[in-house]
């Protein structure tokens, strides 16, 4: 049987190979925190973390995730027990309608791991070294997550606060 581990629990994968990872999470596993904004990898609302890396769950078939470990917004923190990152989003008003928010937060969490791993980005001056963390770097690295309400600068402020208060190895688990 094909299974994947979602937020720490093993689940059998759906039998219809057409089922996307996104629809499986939202509709079959009752984890609607992961959002469907475009269903075509163009907005980032469906971002989840698979084996430690962020991806668009809308563009992957659930059956391709046998043996994978998947983290969704529901595992990052609940409403009465928010993570540091989630709290920073609330404090800085890093959302308005809230629909892109779980994707932004999953993306931000994985971004911190990427920073921690020394990954470069398209705006890094010198890609042969571990880049410094600047606003410009954060903006570029969050650009896979659209926010039509335009909360972008508040989101970046939330990330900066978390990064300032928590060195990367902690921030990544924020």
């Amino acid at each position: 049987m094909l299974t994947a581990c979602v937020n720490g629990t093993d689940h059998p994968l759906p039998s219809d190979p057409r089922r996307t990872l996104l629809d499986w999470l939202r509709d079959d596993l009752a984890l609607p925190g992961t959002k469907k904004g475009c269903d075509h990898g163009q907005c980032g609302a469906c971002t989840v973390i698979v084996d430690g890396r962020r991806m668009n769950s809308c563009l992957s078939l659930a059956q391709l995730h046998h043996g994978d470990s998947i983290e969704t917004i529901e595992s990052i923190g609940s409403a009465d027990k928010l993570s540091v990152l989630q709290k920073a989003f609330v404090t800085h008003d890093g959302f308005q309608c809230g629909y892109c928010t779980p994707g932004q937060i999953c993306s931000a969490k994985a971004l911190m791991q990427e920073l921690s791993d020394g990954w470069a980005s398209a705006v890094s001056d010198d890609i042969t070294v571990t880049p410094a963390i600047t606003k410009e770097e954060l903006r570029e690295r969050m650009s896979g997550n659209l926010c039509r309400c335009g909360a972008y600068s508040n989101i970046i402020a939330a990330l900066e606060e978390v990064l300032a208060d928590h060195p990367l190895h902690e921030g990544a688990s924020a």
Binding site: G77, A79, V90, P102
Partner: peptide
Amino acid sequence: LDRPEGPLKVSGSATYSAEWK
């Protein structure tokens, strides 16, 4: 003040239209 519904939104537990069981 922070939005009172903020914790629901940032934790993915605010229920949007297509998500009602």
